[in-house]
């Protein structure tokens, strides 16, 4: 069974004037079909306004489809009775680390989700400890979140989701407000959760370098999925990506330009080492 499945998902933001008449309709998502298997690491790329955050909110049942349907773990998000189970099994991490931490102590914040689920106290304490260890924040458990760095706060937020024992985590631009160091922290945490705990990850981002770890990449533009494939396949289509207002990693772009100039370099180079190797093969 697919972890996440959408069929012809369409969502419209409808603006109304004071009289309740429709002023404008903005189609944020337009007929998206998405299939995510359990244990996958999926990245969704898109420029601002491409509808990727709106898509993420559908998976957590924070928004409901205007047309089409979304299933999380086989449960339809449009059905009220599935709500808690969907939110439990597909946790969501947001962009701003400050605005998603609820408690004044790290461990209490991690316990917030399990508390809402009505888990017994002993079990909460166990889960909090496990999830803080899983993101490497256990030694900060007694601290105030205000004293943590952005990357650390995001890891606490991830731990807060992990404590609900989800099968899937949706991360909505989790690194957009972080410095490079914090970005690395968060991405490596997410990768290890995917590898070790077999959590399905849906990473939404516009940072290209975060995408290279994904099993599969979807590119969104104006509410539609316009490209999909492995990172290597996606990054070999540099011109197309630029059309969708996306940048490719520097090394990929360099390799692409060199190839255009006639050098014999493979498509979709992802790391500096790969490019070095390819160049050394050409000029031994």
């Amino acid at each position: 069974m697919d972890m996440i499945k959408t069929r012809d998902l369409t969502f419209e933001y409808i603006r109304r004037d004071e009289g309740g008449n429709v002023e404008s309709i903005n189609r944020a998502i337009d007929g998206v079909n998405l299939d995510v298997k359990k244990g996958d690491f999926i990245a969704i790329l898109g420029a601002n306004g491409s509808g990727k955050s709106t898509l993420a909110k559908h998976i957590n049942a924070l928004l409901y489809p205007t047309e089409g349907a979304v299933w999380v773990n086989g449960l339809n998000t449009a059905e009220e009775k599935n709500l808690l189970e969907i939110r439990r099994s597909a946790g969501m991490v947001f962009q701003n680390p400050d605005n998603q931490i609820i408690a004044t102590v790290v461990e209490e914040d991690v316990g917030f989700g399990p508390e809402n689920l009505g888990i017994p106290t002993e079990e909460i304490l166990k889960r909090v400890e496990e999830s803080l260890k899983a993101v490497g924040m256990f030694e900060y458990r007694k601290q105030s979140p205000n004293k943590l760095s952005g990357g650390q706060k995001q890891r606490v937020a991830i731990a807060g989701i992990m404590a609900m024992k989800p099968q899937c985590i949706v991360l909505d631009e989790p690194t957009a407000m972080l410095d490079p160091e914090g970005r690395k922290e968060v991405i490596s945490t997410v990768c290890s959760l995917n590898k070790l705990e077999k959590i399905t990850v849906l990473l939404i981002t516009h940072h290209m370098d975060e995408v290279i770890y994904a099993d599969k990449v979807f590119v969104m533009d104006r509410g539609k999925i316009v490209m999909q494939g492995t990172p290597r396949e996606i990054f070999s289509r540099v011109d197309e990506l630029k059309k969708y207002r996306l940048d490719v990693p520097q090394v990929t772009e360099l390799a692409y330009e060199l190839k255009k100039e006639g050098l014999d370099i493979p498509d979709g180079v992802l790391s500096i080492q790969e490019l070095v190797d390819a160049l050394l093969r050409l000029y031994p």
Binding site: R87, G91, G113, E115, T121, I161
Partner: peptide, 26 residues
């Protein structure tokens, strides 16, 4: 704006009022 974000983050973490809620540190 923060309040809006926070409300969404709380809902995403299954917050649904005080009913059926347990305490981590009762």
């Amino acid at each position: 704006r923060r309040a809006n974000d926070l409300a969404m983050a709380m809902e995403a973490r299954c917050y649904h009022g005080g009913d059926g809620r347990t305490k981590m540190k009762p």
